[in-house]
């Protein structure tokens, strides 16, 4: 099934599109016929071949604030999908729905259905704890625990009881650090605090900490925004490598980064999922006026 392309008959006149157009008065008069300008349903293709995570009609409210509006999106197995959009567009909120991190915000309310490998993640049968073991998360600012490097990586396996003895735990820790490309750098100082590492190393430590739990999906919330370009490049390489084994959803502010690491891109605007498509297509031939404005630098 393909998603309906926006037609002229759907006239959900919206303040957002109005403001966007006010900013660009010269182009208001005559948009090309292929470009959608109205807001409502998503343009492009929200479906994918081998869906692993499926979000259907998701709405998120923070108290009275309607943060995510009727978002539907499929995420495939072993693909990297980038969520882009201006600040406050709801991309991080959507990301946090996927492992129920919004649960800890008292006023947050999520409606709609999200399935992980066919299982409803907001259903009764699934404990958020077990869910988060399967859907790991890497945060904007590197947040190693104030513990040793070893204990940081061993934390997940320990709480989930993944290792039965010290040797097995050592093995998991080493493998995870190896995968995160950090092992060489920290091999000799496993007992030193994780907070003593550089920013880029800290973020790779956090990635190692996440993959130590052996998740199926990894959510990354602007993982490079606090890092310098060299550290960013290393993380991007790492994401590329990890994409062989994990479904990766990455929120990013940088369009270059989205273009470099992702196979598909989803563009969010004020809580709406405006457009989803293959990365190449989004960046070369966007179907929606707002997407075009964003990638050409006119919003943002």
């Amino acid at each position: 099934m393909t998603m309906a392309i926006m037609t002229e008959t759907e006239t959900t006149e919206n303040r957002t599109s109005a403001t966007a157009q006010v900013d660009l008065p010269d182009e208001k008069r005559d948009p090309p016929a292929t470009i959608a300008t109205e807001l409502g349903a998503t343009v492009g293709n929200v479906r994918c071949e081998n869906p692993f995570v499926v979000a259907e009609n998701i709405d998120v409210y923070y108290g009275d604030n309607h943060a995510i509006k009727n978002v539907t999106l499929e995420i495939g197995k072993s693909e990297v999908i980038a969520l882009i959009g201006p600040s406050g567009c709801g991309k991080s909120t959507f990301l946090r729905c996927l492992n129920r991190m919004n649960d800890s915000i008292e006023s947050a309310r999520v409606t709609g259905k999200i399935t992980l490998d066919g299982q409803d993640i907001y259903g009764k049968g699934l404990d958020p704890v077990a869910l988060r073991a399967r859907v790991g998360m890497v945060f904007q600012k590197p947040n190693p625990f104030p513990k040793s490097i070893y204990d940081n990586v061993a934390y997940g396996p320990r709480i989930h009881g993944l290792a039965t003895d010290r040797a097995e735990l050592d093995d998991i820790v080493h493998r995870s650090l190896e995968r995160a490309g950090l092992l060489k750098e920290v091999k000799d100082r496993m007992d030193e605090p994780g907070t003593g590492l550089s920013g880029g190393q800290q973020q790779r430590l956090c990635i190692a900490r996440t993959i130590a739990v052996d998740p199926e999906v990894i959510l990354m919330d602007e993982p490079c925004s606090a890092l310098d370009p060299i550290a960013t490049a290393r993380i991007e390489d790492l994401i590329d490598e990890l994409s062989e084994d994990y479904a990766i959803v990455i929120v990013t502010h940088s369009m270059q980064q989205a273009a470099r690491v992702s196979r598909r891109v989803a563009y969010f605007h004020l809580g709406l999922l405006v457009e989803v498509d293959e990365t190449d297509k989004i960046f070369t031939n966007p179907q929606h006026r707002l997407t075009e404005d964003y990638i050409t630098g006119r919003i943002g």
């Binding site: 404990d127 704890v129 077990a130 073991a133 989930h160 009881g161 993944l162 052996d214 199926e216 084994d245």
Partner: peptide, 16 residues
Amino acid sequence: MNGLATTREKVEAGLR
């Protein structure tokens, strides 16, 4: 994703 099944089983086992 080697050992995925066992990881999930291990997590589930400890949940109670």
